[in-house]
């Protein structure tokens, strides 16, 4: 499954040119998630204004699918309200990427969990939870 051929063009595009890579300088929330299956790690930081995710950055130590789903997740939640962002599931991200090889579905959970943890952090900082 580690052959380029295992990933479609859309996944490869996000792997090659990942969107929103890095760290925000003044984040309103930061979250990390570790993948218990493979030990890979992802980190997301968000900037929130009026309940809307204004900006988002990620860093990932993981496989091609992990990087591509991280990238796609940041694209999908940018500009969304917190509640809308929480409704973005790992399945929706995988679908938006045109599908993942079955053995790589677990990788997409990483981004969903990192995002949730960043939102929890934001809520904690703002006394909303």
């Amino acid at each position: 499954m580690t052959q380029t051929g295992a990933y479609n063009d859309k996944v490869m595009d996000h792997f090659r040119n990942p969107r929103n890579v890095g760290e925000l300088e003044h984040p309103d929330g930061v979250g990390t998630a570790g993948n218990p299956v493979c030990g890979d790690i992802m980190e997301i930081s968000i900037q929130v204004e009026d309940d809307v995710i204004k900006d988002v950055r990620f860093r990932t130590f993981g496989c091609g699918a992990a990087i591509a789903t991280s990238s796609m997740t940041t694209e999908m939640v940018k500009g969304k309200t917190i509640d809308e962002a929480l409704a973005v599931s790992n399945k929706a991200v995988a679908e938006a990427l045109g599908g993942l090889p079955p053995i790589k579905m677990h990788c997409s959970v990483l981004a969903e969990e990192a995002l949730r943890s960043a939102i929890d952090d934001y809520r904690r900082r703002n006394g909303k939870s």
Binding site: T2, M12, C63, A66
Partner: peptide
């Protein structure tokens, strides 16, 4: 870094 990312980049 993770090996698959390296492998895919080299493959490109």
């Amino acid at each position: 870094v993770e090996g698959e990312g390296l492998l895919l980049n080299l493959d490109m």
